[in-house]
Design a protein around this nucleic acid. Structure first.
Lengths: 249, 249
DNA sequence: TTAGGATGTGTAAGTTTTACACAATATTAG
DNA sequence: CTAATATTGTGTAAAACTTACACATCCTAA
């Protein structure tokens, strides 16, 4: 095979002089609609949930879909993700990170649309939904099936991303009230990682990391011996960030 | 703020009936040209390099840029990455993985272009470049500055991605000849991770992982005592993949 | 023959991880 | 008010892993 022959015409131009008119060049490129989808994981009553709406395409009638929208012309990708979340849910105090782009040519029934997935993790109780359009609701991650588009795949990859992420960054603290018990913290790791952890070892680990502030207060209204309450020491964490490259249960 | 008012017109449609004509919907979306850029890291003579070409835009005259091209209409993202690599370099036996999408509105001087970066790691000696258009060459990762577009940022993020990746997957074996010495393997980890490792501990670690096959052969033509040669046991690795979730030096 | 340079190897100390059980404290039901 | 139940809080020993470290071996080249 003569590989030189295969070079794209767009790139071939280089054999001539440099391209002066970048604008015309870009204008000549084929273009694809871009959406940004938000995969918002939430924790409530010991279950990991994800925020979904009902698809508005007849083609996917009745199926669930992620919160997404078209990227605006002059918008940063990340900015679009925050906008979408705000518009759909009313939330504005959530930290989003890019997971990856999904671009199979046939993932959208209306023609090619590439989507870029952003992910977050939050405490459902502390982030009240203010908008319920399109049946917006929290859906248990375990019971997902048959979503619209390739959204099942997007959720699965995001979940996997999250599991790794939570072992390197104290994302989990976003999920808890400011004051929390160690049991709550442990539940959270168990649910997200899908494993059971030893209580004593879990405590040992977190105390040794030294990011918990003992509040000398106790849970109330629990039907058993109340646990001690702690809060997360964000300042200390920021200073010692480097060490956090592995939680490893 | 009345957040309901802020919902995008495209999404508002849902308050009516389901959308039957997905094609018209997608056709009505604004679209953005998409490129795929390949960040190909190569290892040679104890240095980590990255494959670059000279930018063909006057706007970036003289600056280096990644190997990229426009995404074709019906092409998978990943497929585009493989195509670009083949067309630019003649290589076809390289494993590529997506790093992330870069989409700042002004990253391209000709208008908005979103790029999706794919990354790989290979052995320069074993992947001869067959095409040298646009001054294609291997560039030391340490001496990068002032690249075209946001390609410096793309390379930096890809490098960071690679450093994490190599600790979880035996990517590094792609960089070595089929038969390699432990010194070669160690150099490679040292260069990519940017640290010095203890020879005895390094050996212990790799032997304990049990993915090296002792070939009972020795290096030749080295100006010192020759080291033993090994090869990587890919089958065994595939079977025990799960355990590989941390190399951790 | 020797000097130089890189390979190959073991062990002890320190650290981290794992497994495991019982007393203390609150609530609830009787 | 007592007993039953549920959950918190705590320590230790064994095992696994990580780290630091030095010397004899083997080959080349002078």
């Amino acid at each position: 095979m003569n590989t030189t022959d295969a070079i794209s015409p767009l790139l071939r131009k280089r054999s001539g002089p440099l391209i002066a008119d970048a604008k015309s060049l870009v204008a000549s490129y084929p273009a694809v609609p871009i959406t940004v989808d938000c995969v918002i994981f939430g924790f409530e009553e010991n279950e990991l949930k994800v925020l979904l709406i009902r698809s508005d395409l007849q083609h996917f009638e009745g199926k669930w879909s992620l919160l997404g929208d078209i990227l605006k012309e002059t918008e940063e990708l990340e900015q679009a993700a925050y906008r979408i979340l705000l518009q759909r849910t009313g939330m504005n105090d959530v930290f989003l990170e890019q997971v990856k782009a999904f671009g199979s040519p046939n993932r959208h029934p209306g023609g090619r649309v590439i989507t870029i997935a952003y992910c977050s993790l939050l405490n459902i109780k502390h982030h009240e939904l203010k908008i319920y359009d399109n049946e917006l609701h929290w859906h248990n991650v375990k019971n997902l099936n048959d979503m619209a588009f390739d959204h099942k795949e997007v959720v699965d990859e995001s979940y996997h991303w999250l599991q790794k992420r939570i072992q390197e960054h104290p994302l989990a603290f976003n999920l808890l009230p400011e004051k929390f018990s160690l049991r709550e913290l442990q539940n959270l790791y168990e649910v997200i990682l899908g494993v059971e952890l030893d209580r004593r070892n879990f405590r040992k680990k977190f105390f040794s990391m030294d990011f918990l502030i003992d509040l000398d207060e106790y849970e109330e209204d629990v039907p058993h011996r109340p646990g001690k309450l702690y809060k997360f020491n964000f300042e200390k964490y920021e200073k010692n960030k480097k060490k956090w490259f592995a939680i490893d249960f």
